[in-house]
Computed example of a mutant assay.
Amino acid sequence: MFSERLKNERKLHHYTQEFVAQKIGVTRAAYSAYESGKRQPNFEILKCIAQILNISIDYLLENSNQKRYRNMVSTQKSDLGAMAEELLLEINKNQETDFWGEPASKRQKAYLQAAIETALKLSKTNPK
């Protein structure tokens, strides 16, 4: 459901409703209504939300499970640690996941999970 995906994505980014509302130019109450399913954003606001959360509009509208919004010229700063932790969460949810365009096996997921966890541990112990 749109409202659930919207809320989950906002929380994954550790954004408040107030922050997203300010960025898209609506009141916090209006944004809250999007998350509760009481209102639907217009297309321009939907585009802004997708850009802020770095996800595709199709994913938000449940037309696709392809989550990432691919933008060659991004004005947002990427947080690689947050992206890695988000990827770990998705792997742990055990949802259908692709690996190079093909369904991922349990073994591939386990290897990827171990690699990401190791990289995160190493980066936290020796940040430079």
Results as ranks from 00 to 15, higher is better:
48 C>L: 15
46 L>I: 04
119 A>M: 12
91 I>T: 04
54 N>C: 01
123 S>L: 08
110 A>Q: 15
47 K>G: 00
45 I>V: 11
26 V>L: 03
86 E>I: 01
54 N>I: 00
39 R>P: 06
7 K>S: 08
118 T>F: 10
20 V>F: 08
38 K>E: 11
58 D>Q: 10
34 Y>E: 01
73 V>R: 11
3 S>H: 12
40 Q>D: 10
79 D>A: 01
44 E>A: 08
58 D>W: 00
41 P>D: 02
61 L>C: 15
110 A>E: 15
75 T>D: 12
119 A>P: 05
88 L>C: 08
16 T>F: 07
60 L>W: 04
115 A>V: 00
75 T>C: 10
102 E>A: 07
54 N>K: 07
58 D>L: 00
13 H>Q: 06
77 K>Y: 06
126 N>M: 15
118 T>P: 00
110 A>W: 09
93 K>Q: 15
50 A>K: 02
82 A>T: 04
123 S>F: 12
3 S>Y: 10
83 M>W: 05
80 L>Q: 13
93 K>A: 13
15 Y>Q: 02
8 N>F: 09
9 E>C: 01
68 R>P: 00
36 S>L: 14
120 L>H: 09
104 A>D: 09
100 W>D: 14
92 N>F: 02
109 K>T: 00
124 K>N: 11
59 Y>L: 04
123 S>R: 15
101 G>M: 10
117 E>L: 12
42 N>R: 02
123 S>D: 14
25 G>S: 08
67 K>M: 14
98 D>L: 15
111 Y>Q: 13
59 Y>M: 05
111 Y>A: 08
65 N>I: 07
48 C>D: 14
127 P>S: 11
123 S>E: 13
56 S>H: 03
93 K>W: 06
100 W>H: 14
40 Q>H: 05
61 L>M: 14
110 A>D: 15
105 S>D: 09
76 Q>R: 15
9 E>D: 00
99 F>W: 13
37 G>Y: 08
69 Y>H: 10
102 E>Q: 13
79 D>L: 02
56 S>W: 00
116 I>C: 03
101 G>D: 05
83 M>E: 15
53 L>C: 02
36 S>G: 12
111 Y>I: 13
106 K>P: 03
64 S>F: 09
72 M>C: 03
121 K>M: 11
31 Y>C: 06
75 T>L: 12
125 T>R: 11
124 K>R: 13
32 S>R: 07
39 R>Y: 09
104 A>G: 05
117 E>I: 01
1 M>L: 04
13 H>Y: 10
59 Y>W: 12
7 K>F: 04
104 A>Q: 08
7 K>W: 05
28 R>L: 04
13 H>C: 02
8 N>I: 09
128 K>F: 13
65 N>T: 13
122 L>S: 05
25 G>P: 08
107 R>I: 11
118 T>H: 12
113 Q>I: 02
128 K>L: 09
15 Y>P: 01
26 V>N: 07
20 V>T: 01
